[in-house]
Design a protein around this nucleic acid. Structure first.
Length: 539
RNA sequence: GCCCCGGUAGCUCAGCUGGAUAGAGCAACGGAUUUCUAAUCCGUAGGUCACAGGUUCAAAUCCUGUCCGGGGUACCA
């Protein structure tokens, strides 16, 4: 990569003068006028050696070997060192894009494994708009890792054995009872959503009207139905999980008890008020936390520790947890637990996202599965389409709150930037068809014919794709990919608007431009596929 | 109580591992279509980057404090 070469140029200069300096950088310039790349090295060195930064910058210019044609060096005002990169370099990269296609920029390493846990919603109701963020984010993070050569396990962890599920069964029975004319008071704080009415109808159809209140069906059938609906929603969103794991497993195989035993051995547990406390205060936290309630029931931290031990033991190179803000307090305790038990945790990345706020009729609605007060993800897909929904949830950074105004959603969807990207792709598809129709004549590809400003800017934008993907891998922020693709599309639309590709009077130029379109299409297609969004041929 | 996030253009937000004139979309206004898809392009207008200190050659970006807004959490998960 060019940036590395610029860095080593500066490095050479520094070592040849016996200067030791580390915190300087070379960065790409977005604005015009200061070259393609710049470095602050002179500004930083000036302090250390007490020399005017401008002089140092000039010294670097002098140090540059004029036979080096790849880049030129110049110095400007306060003491920036600016680099101009030869267009040949960019044209070479464009050639690579054309040759490598959708593999362009992809790391060749394939020997790493990753586990991404997301959604992890208990089967108490359908997936709602509120779940959308976690769901989409997790899927895109998984794709980003896949692209970077990881063998990714998408994992959905849930609990179908706890109090909430008992509550669900009771609620399901209450609906059933009501339908068959029995007078049963629904459980306090039970589930009241309409989806349970449909399930009650099905239970009546399938099992008749004589079921007893503690009949198994109210738990198993209800859960099955809800899980079917969740899986169907995931399918609608083009998401496929590799593994569904259950909390219950870790009770059954003794892992939970084992955690307690081991922590006990380390003297990290104590009893108080009938509960078992985890001495997190001795591990650097302000307060201790309860692992087993006085009722004998564990808090969710405990099985979570057992579950994470299992994940660590499965030997992944990278473990990613996608959590909502409600876990912000708890996951550090889980990690502390792991660490205390001698497990490696530095390969666990936790992505915490803020919640989605739903607005309806200009009022904020607190979504609650229990109260049946929600808009489902399926509703959103019906209204907006999968592409828009997927894009929508990553348009904001994960740790910004996301306001969702349902009344405006449809309206906004028409202005959704996803169409801007897709339109660029469709435009290119159409153009290539036209080109093949209009121009039959063969000619050699001469990319150096591309000299217009719009062409060069587009090529430069395309060339940064691998670097951008590295950044996205480091941060695991799909939004950055979306932003980049919007820039590519904008750059393309501009080029398209100002220059005609098909020109029968200049076949070589037409051919070069058509190849620029091809290269752009490759980048758009690659990016969109990572985001799980379609790249349409026509719009 | 403890914790998290945010405050940047009229609106929604980028930029935040410090860099040279603070960006985009929407909305507003004015243009471009005999021409490869106008879901596009070009232009105009719009800003004390909440406030106050501090660190630095350099702060929207880092630190401290204040104010405002949103959210989470407690032996429910």
């Amino acid at each position: 990569m060019i940036q590395k070469q610029l860095e080593s140029f500066i490095d050479d200069y520094l070592t040849s003068n016996d200067f030791e300096l580390s915190n300087w950088s070379v960065s790409i310039n977005i604005r015009e006028g200061f070259g393609d790349y710049s470095s602050n090295v002179a500004l930083i060195l000036s302090k250390k050696i007490g020399k005017n930064p401008m002089e140092i910058a000039e010294a670097l210019v002098a140090y540059h070997n004029k036979n080096e044609k790849l880049f030129s060096v110049s110095a400007t005002k306060p003491g920036f060192v600016n680099f101009n990169i030869s267009t040949h370099y960019y044209l070479d990269i464009m050639n690579n894009i054309l040759n490598e296609g959708t593999d362009f920029g992809k790391p060749t390493k394939h020997d790493r494994s990753a586990n991404v846990e997301f959604v992890s919603s208990n089967p108490t109701g359908p997936l709602t708009a509120g779940h959308g963020r976690n769901t989409i984010l997790g899927d895109m993070v998984s794709s980003i890792l896949s692209w970077h050569g990881y063998n990714v396990t998408r994992e959905y962890y849930y609990n179908n054995a706890g109090k909430q599920m008992r509550m669900l069964a009771e609620s399901s029975y209450a609906k059933y009872a009501k339908k068959i004319g029995k007078d049963v008071t629904p459980p306090e704080n039970g589930y009241v959503g309409e989806y349970l009415d449909d399930i009650a109808d099905e239970i009546i159809r399938k099992f008749g009207k004589d079921l007893d209140s503690n009949s198994e069906q109210f738990r198993t059938f209800t859960e099955e139905k809800i899980f079917d609906s969740i899986k169907n929603t995931l399918k609608n969103l083009r998401i496929e999980f590799d593994l569904f794991s259950q909390e219950q497993t870790f009770y059954d195989n003794g892992a939970v008890d084992n955690v307690l035993k081991e922590l006990e051995k380390l003297s990290l547990l104590y009893k108080k008020d009938g509960a078992t406390w985890f001495k997190t205060s001795s591990l650097g936290k302000k307060e201790d936390r309860v692992l087993v309630k006085s009722t004998g029931e564990p808090t969710y931290r405990l099985p979570d520790i057992a579950y994470h031990i299992d994940k660590v033991d499965r030997g992944f190179d990278l473990i990613v947890d996608i959590f909502g803000a409600d876990h912000i307090d708890a996951y550090p305790d889980v990690l502390l637990g792991l660490e205390a038990l001698g497990k490696k945790i530095d390969h666990i990345k936790v992505i915490v996202h803020q919640f989605v706020t739903l607005k309806k009729d200009n009022e904020v609605v607190k979504m609650s599965t229990r109260k049946g007060n929600f808009i489902t993800l399926d509703d959103l897909i019906d209204q907006l389409g999968v592409d828009v929904v997927r894009y929508f949830f990553i348009m904001r950074g994960a740790n910004s709150h996301l306001d969702f105004d349902f009344d405006l959603a449809k309206d906004e969807s028409e202005k959704n930037p996803v169409y801007y990207l897709q339109y660029a792709h469709a435009r290119i598809s159409n153009l290539i068809v036209r080109y093949n129709n209009d121009i039959k004549e063969k000619t050699d590809l001469d990319l150096s014919l591309l000299v217009e400003k719009d062409e060069i800017l587009l090529i430069k934008k395309l060339s940064t794709f691998p670097k951008k993907m590295d950044e996205i891998y480091e941060s695991l922020e799909p939004r950055k990919l979306a932003t980049y693709l919007e820039e590519v599309a904008a750059s393309y639309h501009k080029f398209y608007g100002n220059h005609k590709v098909i020109n029968l009077d200049n076949i070589p130029l037409s051919y070069a431009r058509k190849n620029l379109c091809n290269a752009t299409q490759i980048i758009l297609k690659t990016g969109l596929s990572i985001l799980g969004i379609t790249a349409p041929e026509k719009m």
